[in-house]
């Protein structure tokens, strides 16, 4: 089991830092480049959503990214202290008839990893859990 926790300020320049750390962790774990590219986008989406939610809320509470790796899967938890769970009733399209950024973000999160769960946290905010199953053997 490998556990790595990274705490970043809820500001946009630090999302790139998370990607750099993630690349290094994924390569150490033997993840192939295509799966890494997908995971990088999913983690960036969760972090970008957290940064934008923090900006909107006027909060500077840190974002925590927790990498957990075992024999069967890689799990990345992103704790977003200002985020809200997806609203199933929210409009999918903006006024111009295009998908809103959040809808596109959710499509990427749900497609690029094996599982994506977004849960409310009792202390406030949300936790996004991304899971990538590792090939057997």
């Amino acid at each position: 089991m490998v556990n790595v926790e990274l705490q970043i300020p809820a500001r946009s320049p630090y999302v790139g830092v998370v990607r750099l750390a993630l690349s290094s962790l994924a390569r150490t774990a033997g993840m192939d480049e295509e799966a890494l590219d997908d995971l990088k986008i999913a983690v960036s989406e969760a972090c970008a959503n957290a940064v934008l939610a923090g900006e909107e809320a006027g909060s500077d509470e840190a974002i925590t990214v927790h990498w957990i790796e075992d024999g069967e899967r890689l799990m990345v938890d992103i704790a977003d202290p200002s985020g809200s769970p997806p609203d199933p009733d929210a409009a999918e399209l903006d006024t111009g008839g295009f998908s809103s950024r959040l809808v596109m973000s959710r499509a990427l999160l749900e497609t690029l990893v094996d599982s994506c769960e977004i849960e409310s946290v009792p202390t406030g905010g949300i936790r996004t859990r991304l899971v990538v199953n590792r090939p057997a053997g």
């Binding site: 990607r19 986008i41 960036s44 970008a48 950024r101 596109m104 973000s105 990427l108």
Partner: peptide
């Protein structure tokens, strides 16, 4: 090298 939903927006 990298594009996410903020770039798409």
């Amino acid at each position: 090298d990298f594009l996410d939903s903020t770039g798409l927006g």
